[in-house]
Amino acid sequence: MLELLNFNLIFVAKIVLIIFVKVHVANTCCKGCIDVDELTFEKVMVKYPYTLVKFDISYPYGEKHEEYAKFAKNYAKKIIHDLLIVCVGVKDYGDKDNMDLALKYSVDKNKFPEIVIFKNTTLHARWPGYLDIKYENIKKFIKENTELYIGLDGCLKEFDDIAAKFMKTSNVDEKSLILSNSKSRSDIVKGTSNIYILTMEKILKFGNNFIIDEKVRLEKLSKTKISSSKKKEISQKLNILKIFNSYMPKNDEL
């Protein structure tokens, strides 16, 4: 009888644990970010230089939430030590969970979702009202308000810096030296570094017009019937071209 009772207790405990886990997962705002409340808000933020916060309804949905979730999923691992990505679910009914937290930072529930950046535990920047909540705009918001590196898909910080040096000098010998040195780094960094190398080689051969011509070629190719992997490769190449173009002399810019 005692053994049966113990078995039943263990069985019930397992069921409770499964329900708890399912509820916890269901309440998670999005993959790559964490849910916080009045009690945990500052406790988790204090450990990070910056925290990206989305104040929203308790069970967020829709395009704006999906764009935030997309950013969290793609960037949580890339900048894991410098940026914490969180959600604050606010209720204006019942126990009014996190409503005091929203009021503390002057967040208007009628304008949900509202995205802000905290520097440690101090409110640092608010999402500009004129800007749509889109994946690329979230990256732009962070770039403009922090010193964190938020690269475009396929871009590498080290090679973005190399591209900047390469484009800023008009001296062919200096460009050749930068290219030569970057080849040794490419073997170490790998990834898409070979695209940077090839782009610099082409620019040396054909001049800055290569950037314009290659952009047109790739955009046309992206509209044809190609595989998803090829589309991704083209998208990364276009993003890298954007880096080179951003440092091109004004009279040559796209």
Rank of each mutant, 00 (worst) to 15 (best):
T40Q: 11
K143S: 05
V53Q: 08
K43C: 00
E147F: 01
Y61G: 02
N171D: 15
M45V: 07
Y75D: 09
Y130C: 06
T40G: 06
E38M: 09
I117F: 10
V88A: 03
K139D: 02
C155F: 06
E158M: 06
F112C: 07
G154E: 14
R126G: 02
D108K: 08
K73E: 15
N110R: 09
V36Y: 09
H81Q: 14
I57R: 13
H81S: 13
A125Y: 09
C33A: 15
Y93L: 09
Y59G: 02
H65Q: 11
E114Y: 00
V36R: 11
T121C: 07
P128C: 06
K111T: 02
S106R: 05
S176G: 00
Y105A: 05
M45Y: 07
D161K: 07
D160W: 08
V107R: 09
P128S: 12
V86S: 04
F166C: 06
S176Y: 08
D132F: 08
D92Y: 04
D161T: 03
K111M: 08
K104D: 06
G154P: 07
A69D: 08
K134C: 03
K139L: 02
K165F: 09
H65K: 07
V90K: 12
H124R: 04
E144L: 05
G129H: 12
S176C: 01
G129W: 06
D92K: 04
C33V: 02
I85P: 01
Y48D: 01
E158C: 02
K111N: 10
L148D: 03
S170F: 11
I34N: 09
D160L: 13
E66Y: 03
G154C: 09
A76E: 14
K165D: 14
K139R: 12
P128D: 15
T122P: 00
P49M: 08
T169E: 14
